[in-house]
């Protein structure tokens, strides 16, 4: 029994350490809005319809300034686009290729293996077009920010007038969810900004939720596979560990006197 108490204490401390690690960085800004995401939890899955709507929001609104350099057209099969649709979609974009045999760069229609086109050729051009601020690449935004999809959702739905005593720098916009409360990005979403292909009403909350889920998928397209395999692995290990425990007890029963 004493041994059990010790084990419990040690386990508690282990948990304590991991909790501490989890809250390592003090969060700045207001507490984030919390949103129920279908992909959270052990059995979480992405909502394909939401992913497709989110892609549409990205394409129609965000892609003007933000790249997603780690996504190729081919990857969009992961949000439910068929191979033919992906090929056709890719071909609607002109992509730079080359140099050809004359040493010149040339344009050609996109292919599924091409990455989604960047709005700006380099960070300097991006800054020049955005008042010195660099719109970050969105490929990993959902895992590169504390709060992930909740952070994205909060930012997109969090624009409001600055409080009277707040000194807002020229060119910046007030958003209480952004560290420092001043964000370079002007409010990107307005009701009906996107005409959804599936007919869903495009409120700001709807678009913010859809694009946040799309970006969560973009940050980790393999998430569903990860959880699926995880369930199998954990179940397998539970069985194996149970068998190992029974074997251990059997081996040791030979010498235990009580």
């Amino acid at each position: 029994m004493r041994g059990m108490a010790r084990t419990a204490t040690a386990a508690l401390m282990a948990v304590g350490i991991t909790v501490l690690a989890g809250v390592a960085v003090a969060a700045e800004g207001t507490a984030l809005k919390s949103h129920d995401w279908p992909f959270e939890g052990v059995f979480g899955r992405f909502d394909q319809a939401a992913l497709q709507r989110g892609y549409q929001v990205y394409r129609d609104v965000c892609s003007a300034c933000h790249s997603v350099r780690f996504l190729t057209f081919r990857n969009l099969e992961g949000i439910g686009f068929g191979a033919d649709r992906v090929k056709a979609l890719a071909a609607t974009f002109e992509v730079e290729d080359g140099p050809n045999d004359e040493g010149d760069m040339f344009s050609r229609p996109g292919r599924p293996s091409d990455p989604l086109p960047k709005p700006f050729p380099n960070p300097q051009a991006a800054r020049a077009a955005n008042g010195g601020a660099l719109p970050p690449d969105l490929s990993l935004i959902a895992v590169a920010r504390e709060g992930g999809p909740n952070y994205i959702f909060s930012i997109l739905t969090g624009y409001q007038d600055a409080p009277a005593d707040f000194e807002l720098t020229d060119g910046k916009n007030y958003n209480p969810y952004f560290p420092g409360h001043q964000i370079g990005m002007p409010e990107p979403l307005f009701d009906e900004a996107v005409d959804y292909a599936d007919g869903t009403k495009a409120t700001v909350d709807q678009m913010a939720g859809d694009v946040a889920q799309f970006l969560a998928w973009a940050s980790e397209p393999t998430m569903v596979e990860r959880k699926r395999i995880g369930i199998k692995v954990v179940l397998f290990l539970l069985v194996l560990t149970g068998l190992l425990y029974a074997s251990k007890r059997k081996v040791w029963s030979k010498i235990k006197s009580h």
Binding site: F236, L240, L243, S247
Partner: peptide, 19 residues
């Protein structure tokens, strides 16, 4: 009975190793 337990454990373990 004991051997069956060890056999079962070993078999499950082997499956795990391959996986």
């Amino acid at each position: 009975r004991r051997d069956f337990l060890y056999l079962a454990t070993g078999a499950v373990g082997a499956v795990g190793v391959v996986a």
